[in-house]
Amino acid sequence: MAILETARFEIPLLAAGQAHKELFHNEALTRIDFLIHPTVQGIESDPSNIEPLPGQSWLVAPGATNEWQGHDDHIAGWTGNGWAFIAPLAMMRVYIEPAASFAVYRGSWQPAEAIANPAAGSVVDSEARQAIDSILAALVAQGILLSGL
């Protein structure tokens, strides 16, 4: 029998003569909706700590409990009818709203870090510092790094 889902994100596919095609089609659109510019409300391990609205999603922290148990590192999206879980792929990037920055999946979710601008040293190269400050500012503007201290 043919596999009736996509290889990467397990999005349901339709089959000829399939009954209730609208259910599979709607499930596929729901997953796609969570995957296009993925944005999460935070990182959480217990869904009972939140009151989700349809379309909101969270990164499932390690050691997840209740309905999220067994879905560590997945994106959990609330559909209004229940949770949809999406397994991450290497180098997948999601925007974390409360942090106003991104996390990248490298075996586990790696949130952006804060890096302080250079401020001390026995020899000060002002041109090098200006270049480093510009690079850091560009990385912060893209959400790759958090603003320095």
Rank of each mutant, 00 (worst) to 15 (best):
V60A: 05
A61G: 09
P62R: 10
G63C: 08
G63T: 12
A64S: 14
A64F: 03
T65S: 15
N66A: 08
N66D: 13
E67H: 08
W68D: 02
W68S: 04
W68E: 06
W68C: 05
Q69A: 15
Q69W: 06
G70D: 07
G70Y: 00
H71Y: 12
H71P: 06
H71W: 02
D72R: 13
D72A: 00
D73Y: 12
D73E: 12
H74I: 04
I75Q: 00
I75R: 01
A76Q: 01
G77V: 00
W78A: 03
T79K: 04
T79V: 06
T79P: 10
G80F: 02
G80A: 07
N81P: 02
N81Q: 07
N81R: 12
G82T: 11
G82K: 11
G82L: 14
G82N: 11
G82I: 11
W83D: 11
W83Y: 03
W83E: 05
A84C: 07
A84N: 08
A84P: 06
F85Y: 15
F85N: 05
I86L: 14
I86K: 10
I86P: 00
I86A: 09
A87W: 06
A87S: 06
A87D: 08
P88C: 11
L89Q: 13
L89H: 15
A90Y: 02
M91C: 10
M92C: 08
M92H: 15
M92E: 15
M92F: 03
R93D: 10
R93E: 10
R93W: 04
V94E: 04
Y95W: 11
I96E: 00
I96F: 00
I96G: 01
E97C: 03
E97D: 06
E97S: 14
P98G: 10
P98S: 11
A99N: 10
A99T: 07
A100T: 07
S101Y: 04
S101G: 09
F102G: 07
A103W: 10
A103P: 03
A103Y: 01
A103R: 09
A103S: 15
V104C: 06
V104I: 09
V104W: 05
Y105V: 01
R106K: 13
R106S: 14
G107T: 04
S108H: 11
